[in-house]
Simulated assay, not measured.
Amino acid sequence: MQEKSLTMLADAPLTPTERRRSLIAVIACISVVGMGLGVSIPLLALLMERSGVPASLIGLNTAMPALATFVFTPFIPGLLRRVPAIAFLLGCIAVSAIAMPAYYLFPSIWLWFFIRFVNGLALTGLFVVSEFWINTLADEKNRGRLIGIYGTVLSCGFASGPILLFLVGTEGMAPFAVIACVIAAAALPLLLFGRGLAPRVTERPTRSFASFFIAAPAATLAGLVYGATETDIFNMLPVYGVRIGMTEQTAAFVLSIFAAGNILCQIPIGLWADRADRRFVLLVCALIGLLGTIAIPFVAHSIWLFAPTLFLFGGVVVGLYTVGLTLLGERFRGADLASANAAFVMMYSIGALIGPPLSGAAMDLWDPHGLIVAMGGLCGLYVLIAGWRYFTAPRIRPAP
Rank of each mutant, 00 (worst) to 15 (best):
L80E: 07
L80Q: 01
R81C: 07
R82S: 09
V83D: 01
A85R: 06
A85Y: 10
I86H: 05
I86Y: 08
L89R: 02
L89Q: 06
L90M: 12
C92Y: 13
A94T: 07
S96C: 11
S96N: 04
A97H: 07
I98R: 07
I98Q: 02
A99T: 00
A99I: 00
M100G: 01
P101F: 08
A102N: 02
Y103F: 11
Y103K: 04
F106N: 07
S108Y: 08
S108F: 05
W110C: 00
W112T: 06
F113H: 09
I115E: 10
R116H: 01
G120T: 04
L121W: 02
L123I: 15
T124F: 14
G125P: 00
F127Y: 15
V128Q: 02
S130I: 10
S130A: 11
F132K: 00
F132C: 05
W133Q: 07
W133K: 04
N135I: 08
L137K: 06
L137C: 15
D139Y: 15
D139H: 06
E140D: 15
K141T: 15
N142V: 09
R143P: 13
R143C: 08
R143H: 09
R145S: 05
R145C: 02
R145I: 10
I147G: 05
G148Y: 01
G148L: 01
I149K: 12
I149E: 07
G151I: 10
T152W: 10
T152N: 01
S155H: 03
C156I: 11
C156P: 13
A159C: 13
S160D: 05
L165R: 02
F166S: 14
V168E: 08
V168T: 12
G169S: 13
G169V: 03
T170F: 01
G172M: 06
M173Y: 12
M173G: 15
M173N: 15
F176T: 00
F176Q: 00
A177V: 05
V178N: 13
V178F: 10
V178K: 13
I179N: 13
A180E: 05
C181S: 15
C181R: 09
V182A: 14
V182I: 05
V182P: 04
V182L: 14
I183C: 03
A184P: 08
A186Y: 10
P189C: 06
L190I: 03
L191D: 02
L191K: 12
F193M: 06
F193W: 12
R195K: 14
R195P: 01
R195A: 06
G196P: 00
G196A: 09
T202N: 03
T202C: 00
T202D: 12
E203R: 14
R204N: 09
R207I: 07
